[in-house]
Amino acid sequence: MSAAIRALLVDDEVLARLALRQALAAHADVAIVGECGNAVEALQAVKALAPDLLFLDIRMPGMDGFKLLHQLRPQALPMVVFTTAYGQHALRAFDAGALDYVLKPIDQARFDQAMDRMRRHWHGLQAPVANPASVGHLQRISVRVGEHIRVIAVDAIDWIRADGNYVQIHADGTRYLHREALSHLLDVLDPARFLRIHRGVIVNVERIREVHPLFNGNAEIVLRDGTRLDLSRRFRAGARAVLGLP
């Protein structure tokens, strides 16, 4: 039996935390390890309890939910689901790396959808891999396609490009638009398998077929499917180390 997903509830309203507890009652694989009424308490609780999942209100006295996330070290950041009564913060919440955004008062069906998304992400993080160097790195990405969720194995990804508040994920000949910050993907993807070649581009090193040197230290990378991508001079050193370039 797998260990429970350990959750911390952060909301300055007692009734809101009670509503979260009631909504979580339908999810037996989640264990509530603590509650906090403000962001200062939450900072201490995250450090002490190391929760896997954070249910986080946005508007709280003093430090708000976004500032709380900025105070946490990226490597210590749990999965985050924002819970708030204010829908206008949705875009910023996803930009901050949240898995989902649930409006209050909580609708159980919508909450369950958020939990399903969280669970898919969690299983991707926990999935065993053959290469020990990849342990702890993301193995799957869940992408919304219309009314459905497509689960993409990271091994199937050819390359990724930043696109405003989204990223374009190119995998198996298909382009998926996914609300995720490129910087967050860089934190969770295996750096031995995914190489940053430009400020807004990551490429799967297994898909690289050729590298063509250009002027001024830049280069062009050609993938197996013929896709051509720029390797900027800024990231040439990292490519040299990973690809063994001269």
Rank of each mutant, 00 (worst) to 15 (best):
R110A: 05
A25E: 14
P191S: 00
F94I: 06
Y86T: 00
N165E: 10
T83P: 05
T174D: 11
D172T: 15
H137K: 08
H70D: 14
Y176H: 12
H70M: 13
D64F: 10
D187E: 15
A7Q: 04
M63K: 15
V151K: 07
R193F: 07
R228M: 06
F215C: 12
D116Q: 11
L15T: 11
R144D: 11
E210R: 12
S2Y: 11
G217V: 03
G65E: 06
L99I: 15
I208H: 04
G136N: 00
M79A: 15
L20A: 05
M63L: 15
R175Q: 14
N131S: 06
V205R: 14
A109V: 09
R117L: 09
E206D: 14
L49M: 10
E147H: 13
A16N: 09
I169W: 10
V81A: 06
D107G: 04
R6N: 02
V167R: 03
V14R: 12
L195W: 00
L195G: 03
R228N: 07
S183C: 02
L99C: 08
L53K: 00
S134I: 04
A85C: 02
R234Y: 01
R193I: 03
Q71M: 10
F94Y: 12
D95E: 15
A114Y: 02
Q88S: 03
L245D: 02
R233F: 02
F194S: 04
M60K: 07
L54P: 00
M63G: 11
L91T: 04
Q168T: 14
S134L: 10
P191F: 01
P132E: 05
N131M: 07
Q44G: 14
F235Y: 13
A19M: 08
P78C: 03
A96R: 02
F55A: 04
Q139M: 04
A114N: 02
A192K: 08
L177C: 09
D12V: 14
A237C: 06
R117C: 00
R196N: 01
L49H: 07
I149A: 13
D52Q: 05
R59F: 10
